[in-house]
Design a protein around this nucleic acid. Sequence first.
RNA 1: GCGCCCGUAGCUCAAUUGGAUAGAGCAUUUGACUUCGGAUCAAAGGGUUGGGGGUUCAAAUCCUCCCGGGCGUACCA
Length: 542
Amino acid sequence: MKEYLVEIFNRLSEKIDYLRNIEILFSVPTQLGHGDYSTNIAMILSKQLKRSPTSIANEIVQKLQYDSKIIDKVEIAPPGFLNFYFKSDFINNIIKTILNENSNYGKSEKYKNKKALVEFVSANPTGPLTVGHGRNAVVGDTVANMLETVGYNVDREYYFNNAGRQMRILADSVKLRYLEICGEKIDFPEDYYQGEYIKDIAQKIYDEKGKGLSTDKNLEYFQNIAETEIFTDIKNTLKNIGIEMDSFYNEYCLYENKAIENLLNTFKEKELSYEKDGALWFKLSQLGQEADKVIIKSTGEPTYRLPDIAYHVTKYQRGYELLVDLFGSDHNATYPDVVAGVKALGYDTTKLKVLIHQFVTIMEKGSVVKMSTRKANFITLDELINEVGADVVRYFFIMRSIHSHLNFDLELAKKHSDENPVFYIQYAHARICSILQMTKEQELNSSIEHLDLLTTESEQVLIKKLYKFSYEVLYSTENYEPHRIALYLEELAESFHKFYTECRVIGVEKDLSEARISLCIATRIVFRNGFKILGINAPERM
RNA sequence: GCGCCCGUAGCUCAAUUGGAUAGAGCAUUUGACUUCGGAUCAAAGGGUUGGGGGUUCAAAUCCUCCCGGGCGUACCA
């Protein structure tokens, strides 16, 4: 439909000067009575042409040439909208397209063969993933799915810092617990990792090595074991919600491969760094930032900025054309330094898209649960997955805009999980499967010979909704708004349920029945393609 | 103080990026199964889009000033 409008307006612009070199937007009106597509072009041009919108609209309608087999009518609605109504025969062709393209329907080749890297989760391995990390994990994976749908070759990457203070405290925490198990009296500092999992790791070391470890020399040993153990756990959790990383990139290797050293030299050459108070500073104030920041502390240890910049440089060096970073809002003050850094090195930062999602507020029994890995006051993502299932977890985290604070009511998720919208859309899919199973048993076939019989309002609404899918995918992807896919699927389910209530598939006249079976199959295809993007199951029975 | 995000129905959130009568789910009330799955459908109530001012044919959306909340604002990540 939209393509056709663009086509006829392109031809029209040869006849009407003022339509040249401007972008004409077509949108689907919210009101059913406002046509299938609508444009506001007459109102936009009104000021520039010093004419009334209706006079412009009238001229457009008079000179616009279109195939009356495709467009039924064009209306002018005050204060100057142009509303286009398409012939249902033409609209129904979308069913053929969907059946043909099948699992490819909704995909686009717009970004074919381009390489993208999505960095997400990136939690340091100091403990299990919590519900708080869940949003990042699910959004990141879904954005990656979306980018794949529009043609990108996507790599999913997890970056972590294992050379800093956090990890030393982790190692020391394990060491102290180990000594405790060995029978020594210990003083366990309050700001150390309090979680039970630390004791589990210590116990495992004790079981394998006994008491004999010379603990004061083996902090690195404790860190390695803790890192390995915790990562095994993290990877397992990710797997439980269907996430598989292509790579894990650690800070330590940036020291090993001299990336940090090289970066420091480059900064020095470009006079972007200087020494003050025993520390090395990065001249961010010259790069449009508010103040200079320290990159190497007076202790000789780098701050996170240095490895983060070096890490992002490797992304460019690895040849990606799109870099997506996904952070929680606690990082919103740090990423501009990194962006400024890579920009100063001459890299194209328009390729770098930083997404910041707001925090998840956990509600339990009506009050907010404050989470802290250090204090071991958290609900793990695994616990949540076990309670409500992976589909609900994924859907819950994706259904809201990333800019909005997400209120996760544990009681609601656990006790009333059958009220979750994810069941609404999965139910629609299961229902279709059930109908199709039944038509099979009754030896009814699908056919596209008589799609013209699909004329009722609920059929037309459903078909137009199916048509919308490919646009929705592209739009949501280009704007990094994964929640719109969930929203779309809810609309689709609504349209299908309504069709189901009003139109019988089985037990009506043969040609009509066959056409409706085709519509059901097409709807099932769109549900499956949508579910695949969201990473949730398409159950045939519930 | 400054930066980013948010404030929309009783609650949780949408709104095709500036469009036409601001929509869903939950909750409340009321209807619909001897026929394809009632995890559904239909209907009702519920709103000065936090507040004031501005921009224009048109503002929940953009600008500005207040009010309220979240996250930051390190020689932590």
